[in-house]
Write a protein that binds this DNA or RNA. Structure first.
Lengths: 158, 158
DNA sequence: CTTTTTCCAAGCGCGATACTTGGTTATTTC
DNA sequence: GAAATAACCAAGTATCGCGCTTGGAAAAAG
């Protein structure tokens, strides 16, 4: 999956929506002001998010955007994939049967990494981020020790 | 860290070198023919790899490139970072103190993911890939079940 | 009808990618 | 020493995605 600032923008904007909570829809102008992202760029991002049914827009004065699902049901991976469309990490895209040997090796390496990244982001919901924010605010500032267990042999192992 | 085809090219080329083994230096022309990468693009990649002391070039007829270290001591992360130079995932780059709240949340999220990816690739050496290739060749074709244990709470946890 | 907001389309400047062209060194072979 | 080989080096080019701009349209509220 591709990882660029585009996906980050989308996540930040969605998080803004999530934090805004249930007090009516939120306008893109507000998010633009909050996050320093241009309005029309946000429009493009939200167009993609809308297609993927992650947000719901209402027009007219007092309108804006809602989250289409509860924060718990929206994963970061969903958000990123909506705007930063998935591009194959591998060159031959699977169809061109990779001439055995080196290409196939790196092929599976990138596939592993790719699904690795996806799983990482898929297990984190907007609700998780919100909860984390509440905790950070409450606990002043102490460095968190985010560690993820990982077995390196898994790749070398057939 | 950035992940693009550039890094994949570098890894594939290095793997080609690794598989070529100790039978003298390998020319970029050979790699170019093997991998379908243009010669001068390879030259640029290898210029970067040479600066990072991952390969050693010898000129003249019969010349080419050696790996500068044993395959076991070259991690995929090293190779990728050599050509695909590290770009900050976060916007403010750390110096601009992120105005507390949303940005800080996604900030640490991307940092976690970034180091996550780096660690994943750093724990895999060229030797691992070579070994994996030998196994794949030996065992005909049965799908591997590469799984990496991961605790999703680590991100939400403060 | 005017205002607000989402929706929509086209284009632009920039930077990176993958590649080309056209060289220059250094080293070996004849 | 001349020719061939192959690493080195510099500059430029086409293309593509990003982040943003411009200029609108349609829907909803006052």
């Amino acid at each position: 999956m591709r990882l660029s600032t585009k996906g980050r923008y989308a996540v930040t904007a969605m998080l803004d929506l999530a934090l805004h909570g249930d007090s009516g829809p939120m306008t893109l102008s507000d998010i633009s002001a909050n996050q320093g992202i241009s309005l029309s760029y946000l429009e493009q991002l939200f167009a993609a998010l809308r297609v993927k049914k992650l947000v719901r827009g209402v027009r007219g004065p007092g309108g804006g955007y809602y989250l289409a699902k509860p924060t718990k049901e929206i994963s970061i991976a969903e958000v990123v994939c909506a705007v930063d469309e998935w591009v194959e990490f591998t060159r031959c895209g699977g169809k061109e049967d990779c001439q055995d040997g080196q290409r196939c090796l790196t092929h599976s390496l990138w596939n592993d990494l790719s699904s690795q990244i996806y799983e990482f982001l898929d297990k984190i919901s907007l609700a998780d981020l919100v909860a984390r924010g509440v905790k950070i605010e409450a606990e002043a500032e102490n460095e968190d020790q985010t560690k993820i267990t990982q077995n390196p042999e898994s790749v070398a192992a057939a």
